[in-house]
């Protein structure tokens, strides 16, 4: 049974998220910064009346910050029943992955903690890191996000 993933890039790495987890993909837009919250939470976005916090995945992954441009993308997702936005460098594709293309989690560099890496997929010579959105934020971060919302 093939599963569909949306892929995106952080620097040169391609990441994948299950398509079902995504509510909408929007282009980068100006958001309202909220003072006094953790760096990871960049601010609030009002999308057609729905207000939700956004955070930067680069910061979460301890990657160096990068200036947002018109190709930056915000994924509107639902994590643990919360609507939130995730800023990534740029989106790429929708891919369908068969179970045999999905490889068990390899050992990665210690800078990327593996608990939110569901698996790594291989398609041709592409290597895609599949993320588990539910685990991407720990309890503390979720609390902070709640506080922000």
């Amino acid at each position: 049974m093939e599963e569909q993933y949306i892929t995106f890039y952080l620097d040169d790495e391609e990441y994948g998220i299950e398509i079902n987890k995504i509510r909408e993909i929007i282009g980068y837009r100006r958001f309202t910064r909220v003072p006094g919250v953790k760096d990871i939470v960049k601010g609030m976005v009002n999308l057609r009346g729905v207000i939700f916090p956004i955070f930067d995945l680069r910061l979460k992954f301890n990657l160096p910050p990068k200036e947002y441009n018109k190709f930056s993308v915000i994924f509107v997702v639902e994590i643990a029943g919360r609507v939130m936005g995730i800023i990534v460098d740029t989106t790429s594709d929708v891919i369908s992955l068969s179970p045999e293309e999905i490889l068990p989690t390899p050992r990665l560099s210690p800078s990327i903690r593996t608990e939110y890496i569901k698996a790594v997929a291989q398609q041709g010579d592409r290597l895609i890191i599949l993320l588990d959105l539910e685990r991407i934020l720990d309890e503390k971060e979720l609390e902070e996000l709640d506080a922000t919302a």
Partner: peptide, 8 residues
């Protein structure tokens, strides 16, 4: 993006 949203 539109296409992706369509896919979603």
């Amino acid at each position: 993006l539109l296409a992706l949203n369509a896919a979603v």
